[in-house]
Computed example of a mutant assay.
Amino acid sequence: MENPISSQPRLLVLAPSRRAVSETFVRANLQGLPFDVTAFFGDERPFNHPWRFAYGLAILLSKACTRLRWLRLASWPASVVTFGLIRLYRPQAVMVEFGFEAVRVMEACAWTGIPFVVHFRGSDASARDRLGLLKSRYRRLMSLAAGVIVKSQPMAQTLMALGARPDRLLISPSGANRALFKGSAPAIAPPVFLAVGRFVEKKGPLHTIRAFSLLETETQPREQRPQLWMVGEGPLVEEAKVLVQSLELQDRVHLLGLRRQEEVASLMREVRGFVQHSLVAPDGDSEGSPVAVMEAQLSGLPVVATRHAGIPEVVLEGESGFLVDEGDVAAMAVAIAKLIKDPALAARLGDCGRRRVLEGFTIDHHLRQVSGLVLKVIEESSS
C-alpha cells in the first residue's frame, strides 16, 4: 500500500480501525480504490513503526480530550501527526473514514492545503455522542472538506444542515459484492429467514425475534415450521437468548454468532428471505444504508425491513420486498407470513432486488463513485 514509484494518484487514508469485523466496507475501499493508498489506523500503535505508533497515540489523546469535552483541543494531537504524514508521504488527497475521525485530523489538511474527503457511515451522523457532541466541530469540518460521502438521503440532509455543499456531497451506499452474493433460490428454499447484523439497538434484533414469534405455526407440522437464523454478536446477544427462551422459540430461532462473509453468502443460498428491523436507537444512532440488505437482494432474496434511513432507497416496497414502520412487529410478521405462504412471490421479489442491486448498488458502483469524487477534488486543487 506504500509504493513511492506508483504512477497512480497518491491517497492517504485515515480510519479508526482495520480490524473490526463490521468494517468490511473500509477494507473494500482500501483494496478497490484505483490509487496508491497509504493507510493509518487509530487503534494501531506498533513500536516498530514510529509514525504508526505516533498516529495511534495521537488518536488516543484526541479521544481523551473529547471525553473531557475539550473539543477544539481534541483536534490538535492527531492533526500535528497528520501534518507530518502529509509531509512524509505527499498525498494528492486525504480520505478520512467516519466524521468523528475527520474532526481529529482536519486542521492538518487546512494547514497544508491538501484536499480531503470525509466518508460518513451512520452513527457518526446520528448518535448523540457523535453528532450531538460534535455538531459545532462538524460545521468547521464541512467548511474545510473538499468532498463529503454519505450513505443515504437522510444523512445528506443532516450534513447539509451543518454546511455541507450539495455540489461536493456524494450519496453512495457501500454496495454488495457480486462475486460472493448470488445464487439464492427462494422459490424452492424452506421457510427459513436470515438476519445479519450486530446485536445492537439500531439493528433491532429483539424486534425481529418478537415479530417472528407472532407467526401462526400451530397448524403446521413441526418440521415445516418457519425458522429464523440470526448472524452476529453484540451487547444484546444475551438479552436475545433470554427472549428466545421466554417466547419458547428455541427450536425455531437460532443464534449463529459471527460468520465470515463467505459463510453469510452461503447461508443466503439456503433461505427463503432476509429480515432486518432497523430503527433509531435510544441514543439517536441510525443506519446509513445497511450493506446486508443489499447483499441479500443481490443474492436474490426478498427483504422484509423497516422504513428507516437509506433502506427505502434500496428496497422497493412491494417490488423487491416489504417495508414496515419502525417498531411495528405485527406488520413485520404479516410480511414474513406472505413469503412463507407464497414461495413464488418470494422469488419474484428476490429477482427484482437482484436486478436492482446489479444496476446500481454493488461495490463496483460504490468504488467508481468514490474514485470519481476523489479525482475531482485532486484535479480542482491542482488547477
Rank of each mutant, 00 (worst) to 15 (best):
V324I: 05
L73A: 14
S289Y: 00
F25Q: 04
R260F: 10
R19V: 12
V280F: 10
E223K: 15
A185E: 10
G353M: 02
A305N: 05
A110N: 13
V94K: 03
P343D: 00
V314T: 04
R307I: 03
E248A: 15
S22W: 09
A146R: 10
A28Y: 03
F116T: 09
L206F: 07
A346Y: 01
V280I: 15
V81G: 08
L60F: 15
V148W: 03
K341H: 14
R139N: 05
F181A: 01
R210C: 06
S143K: 15
S152I: 05
V304F: 00
P302N: 01
V329G: 01
G318M: 06
L349W: 00
V81S: 06
S62F: 02
M95E: 08
L141Y: 01
P191S: 09
A337F: 03
A15P: 04
V370P: 03
E317P: 04
P226N: 03
G42C: 04
V148P: 02
A102M: 05
R19G: 12
A28T: 13
V303K: 02
I59W: 08
I59V: 11
R222W: 14
E44A: 11
L255A: 05
E107Q: 15
R368V: 09
E223S: 13
G350I: 01
R178W: 10
V271E: 00
Q31R: 15
F193E: 01
S174V: 15
Q220V: 13
A39C: 10
V103C: 06
Q297K: 04
Q250H: 14
A179K: 14
L61G: 11
L85D: 05
A344Y: 10
G132W: 08
N3H: 11
F361H: 07
S62A: 12
S383Y: 14
D283P: 06
A78N: 07
K63A: 13
W229V: 07
E313T: 08
A110C: 14
D364E: 14
A337L: 07
S17D: 09
L73G: 09
M1T: 12
S6G: 04
A281Q: 00
R348V: 02
I363F: 08
S7I: 13
A15C: 11
E262T: 14
A54C: 07
G232E: 01
K151T: 11
V96W: 00
L68S: 11
F212Y: 01
K241C: 09
T306N: 02
G147P: 03
V80M: 14
F193N: 03
V303Y: 00
A145M: 06
F53Y: 13
Q227R: 15
A189I: 00
S6D: 02
V117C: 08
R121D: 09
G84K: 12
A330V: 12
E233Y: 04
T38P: 07
V80D: 11
Q157R: 15
F25I: 04
R348M: 07
